[in-house]
Nucleic acid binder design. Structure first.
Lengths: 129, 129
DNA sequence: CTATCATTTAGACGATTGTCGAATCAGGAG
DNA sequence: CTCCTGATTCGACAATCGTCTAAATGATAG
């Protein structure tokens, strides 16, 4: 699972018209992040110390039941935005930056140097602890 | 003179946890683009010669009725992603780059310095159809 | 006035979504 | 082994969404 296909999928959206398949694929990815809970989950995981967060830390921040949180995490996982790993009793999630960068490239201004996705990337993980 | 004030709404999503209001506002914006039709509309408008596209050009690219296209355009307009202007018989839409840049900044890699919104754009479009 | 382009409104329909409760799975602790 | 806790899966529910048809409205050209 979590097939990280680093495709050159996304020129900026203002560069050329998207084909139907491209648009459908990107819409699926965007639907995954177009939710307040999932957006917060993503940012909580991505900004957590060590680059990963335990589910037990996430659930407390919401007024939602555990199954609901699991549901949102699964959607993020299926979209290829996060990846989970079980260590002992707890499950830890971490961001898959390639997928997030796809979105960044899609909405990047035309003049941007697009530092990610197959280009002459100067640095992929600026913060690694 | 492109004296543009950069809308500094969003630190990258991996920088710090989003607050609930921030997440809700961004989710609303993301929902507007999380649809294949609207994604294609946005890219068709943004990549069209002159920076704007007539509705009459857009409708032909879809197997949808005119009210449905109008509906999607309205959602994009309400989200602040596009702006429409009537000239004679036809209505022309153009992208509002500040809003698109918000999304670009949200998913930008941490090391990337967001370039000025619409800054290096030399266009001042020659208004062609 | 008539014709055309685009939007709006209203209602309707199936599909998708977000949430919950209950059941289930996966590992420690005793 | 049996319990307990963390996390997921399953089944159901109301709410929202995308699309259509049909009709009405506004704006403009001829």
């Amino acid at each position: 699972m979590t097939a990280v296909t680093v495709v050159q999928c996304c020129a900026p959206i203002t560069r050329e018209p998207l084909s139907e398949p491209e648009a459908s694929e990107l819409a699926t990815l965007l639907k995954a992040v177009a939710d307040p809970v999932r957006l917060r989950l993503l940012s909580m995981i991505g900004s957590h110390a060590g680059g990963e967060a335990c589910v037990c830390d996430l659930t407390g921040a919401f007024d939602l039941t555990a199954p609901t949180i699991s549901h949102h995490l699964k959607i993020l996982r299926t979209a290829g935005l996060i990846d989970g790993e079980r260590r002992g009793t707890w499950v830890y999630y971490r961001i898959i930056p390639q997928t997030v960068n796809k979105l960044g490239a899609l909405f990047a201004p035309l003049g941007a140097a697009a530092p990610a996705a197959g280009g002459p990337a100067p640095d992929t993980s600026p913060l690694r602890t």
